[in-house]
Simulated assay, not measured.
Amino acid sequence: MTIIDQLTRIYPSILLQKPKNRKEAAKFQWFTTEDGDLVGIDKAALHDKEADLLSIFLTPINEKHGEPTREAQWRQILKGQDKAPDFHPPRAFRFLIFSIKDTTPDKESIQEAFQSLFPEEVPILWKNNREGMIIEEVFQENQELLTLEGIPDILMSDLYTDIRFYVSDTETHIQDARTVFLWSERAAAIAADYHLGPVVSSIEILPYLFLDSLNREDWNYMKRTVFSDMDEEKELLDTIRVFLESGSNTTLAAKKLYMHRNSLQYRVDKFIERTGLDVKKFEVAVPVYLALLQMEQ
């Protein structure tokens, strides 16, 4: 039995969509479920203690004269529904999908911390107590987007919990919002599976998208083909990974690894000799790099 079925048994007058008449809508207390569904319960049948209890497993929507909040309007759009008549679309937007390591800080404290990062209030859609999404909207022509570098560290010092973000591309067409949202949710899940950094962009996720599509049999064959008996050569494999991440630039890779350029070149040549894979060639470097990423997991 779903949560909506249970609520319907307790509150037979429950509504699952808002009446167009604002006065009628104002007679109900509105909530969203963990799945993002909208529910309205008649205020006359709802006591204060019951409302507090419902707020534990439902997200209350603060009403202003019966109008849906910005969050509720965005939920409609992301579910593929027509946008509300009074929804004013931004010039551009992007999704910041967040995940919280633990639930020690209460949701209100986290919400307040998120809002403090922006000059204006932003919609925040919660999926559950540990996951959700900030929608960063652009309304002004010269409005700057939030720079997330260092933000997880700031939040860690304030909230004492690890918060990670996946940042979508900036979009300008509201009709593409649902498509971008669904893609972003998948990308955020991949970032979590591969334990990527605290802030991950859509570009950074692309190699892992290919890895995620490989089944176990394909990966085992790829590993055997690329590395054969090199499982124990971690230092050499790490060198090749950094070399490829540096655009096959020997000087740059040597600086990252704090080693002499000639020493790095020796390791690259050693890898080529042992595997027969010339990682200096682009068409060889790509599958080798993907295999190295997979081996790290």
Rank of each mutant, 00 (worst) to 15 (best):
Y166R: 11
I190G: 08
I14Q: 03
N62H: 14
A44F: 03
D5Y: 04
F282C: 00
P85F: 12
I14A: 10
S168N: 05
R267T: 03
D52L: 11
P119H: 09
T239E: 08
D35H: 12
M230F: 03
V180A: 12
A177P: 02
P119Y: 09
S116C: 03
L16G: 13
A187K: 09
Y289A: 03
K20W: 02
A192S: 13
I203T: 14
P90I: 07
D102F: 01
Q29I: 00
K49C: 06
Q143K: 09
A26R: 13
Y160A: 14
A26H: 13
D176W: 02
K101R: 10
R241V: 00
L148T: 10
V167Q: 14
L290S: 06
T170H: 01
G36H: 07
A253F: 08
D238H: 14
L96D: 04
I77K: 09
L125S: 10
S168E: 02
F87K: 14
N215G: 11
I134C: 06
L182W: 03
P68T: 11
E171C: 05
D176L: 07
F139S: 07
I77E: 06
I154V: 11
L236R: 12
T8M: 10
I154G: 00
A188L: 04
F98M: 04
F95V: 03
W74Y: 14
M222F: 09
L211A: 06
L182Q: 14
Q73L: 12
K20L: 15
Y266N: 06
M1G: 15
L209K: 11
F210Q: 12
K83S: 13
R130N: 08
A51R: 15
V122Q: 15
W74L: 10
Y266P: 02
A189N: 13
D86T: 11
P12F: 05
I272P: 03
L96M: 08
A189P: 00
N215P: 07
Q175L: 11
G80R: 04
T33I: 10
I124T: 11
T225G: 04
I56D: 09
A189F: 04
W219V: 08
F227L: 05
P60Q: 10
A44G: 04
A285V: 05
L58Q: 01
T250N: 06
Y266G: 00
G276V: 06
L244M: 13
I151G: 02
K280I: 00
L182S: 10
D42P: 01
R241A: 09
A113I: 00
M133P: 01
D212L: 01
D238Y: 08
F139Q: 06
K223P: 01
H173L: 09
D162G: 00
I124V: 15
M222W: 09
L53D: 12
L277V: 03
Y166C: 08
L252P: 00
F98D: 02
T251S: 14
V226N: 07
K43A: 11
